[in-house]
């Protein structure tokens, strides 16, 4: 099995994340206790989602400037992987919220915002499904993708900051950049973010190759 260096790096980082994430020492904080380990799994999902959706938007813009099928495929596949990360992020978040806030869904602004963000991208999938013509589908969904991303930014980064939230980092709750993210957490957290994001890139890479091969196959068949 021949893998390029960054794939080995992904494997190494994720192994490190899982092992160290489960075994390493973590600060003892009230209420959070051991659930703080979710930092290594839940938070990187959102980082990964944003980065991979950013890739998707970049390729959508590229497609609009230069309509190659490959650009469209990358945009589509990375949007799908972004959605997957978002769903995983919501699930891990709900699981965590069950033990710290008491409910799976407690009508928190951040939970709502992320649910709406996912709805936007589900709408993207629906939109793609409703075209027959390939070129038109690619162009119009690229337009929507850029538009949706622009709408997502205020949703995820501005709105939650205006309202009180139970989420760490808001309304005086123990947060993300404050004192409690100490060096032990950072040592696992940053590799975790890079690892999960690279995993997403890997999936996109594979799916894109598969789709490009499929298209070539159908064209020749």
């Amino acid at each position: 099995m021949k893998l390029t260096w960054w794939k080995w790096l992904t494997i190494a980082l994720l192994l490190y994340t899982v092992v160290m994430g489960m075994l390493s020492e973590v600060p003892r904080l009230a209420i959070l206790n051991e659930t703080i380990r979710n930092l290594y799994f839940h938070v990187p999902m959102w980082f990964g989602m944003i980065l991979i959706l950013l890739v998707s938007v970049v390729y959508s813009i590229k497609y609009l400037r230069n309509p190659l099928t490959r650009n469209d495929i990358i945009a589509y596949e990375s949007a799908k992987v972004g959605i997957l990360f978002g769903v995983l992020g919501i699930i891990t978040g709900m699981e965590w919220a069950r033990f710290t806030w008491g409910e799976f869904w407690s009508n928190d602004p951040k939970q709502n915002a992320s649910a709406i963000g996912l709805l936007i991208y589900f709408a993207y999938l629906i939109l793609r499904g409703s075209f027959q013509d390939h070129q038109q589908r690619a162009r119009i969904s690229a337009v929507y993708n850029v538009f949706a991303f622009a709408a997502l930014i205020p949703l995820l980064f501005i709105l939650p900051r205006l309202t009180d939230s139970l989420h760490p980092g808001n309304g005086g709750n123990p947060g993300f950049n404050s004192y409690d993210l100490d060096s032990r957490l950072r040592a696992v957290f940053y590799p975790a973010v890079i690892g999960w994001t690279l995993l997403g890139v890997w999936v996109v890479h594979l799916r894109t190759r598969l789709e490009v091969l499929k298209q070539r196959f159908y064209e020749n068949a």
């Binding site: 709805l119 936007i120 709408a123 629906i126 939109l127 075209f131 038109q136 119009i140 538009f147 709408a151």
Partner: peptide
């Protein structure tokens, strides 16, 4: 308007974008 089922799509696309 470019797509096949305009009515549904209009609602599906617009509601999440409008929420903020």
């Amino acid at each position: 308007a470019k797509a096949a089922n305009t009515g549904t799509l209009m609602a599906v696309l617009s509601f999440p974008v409008m929420v903020p």
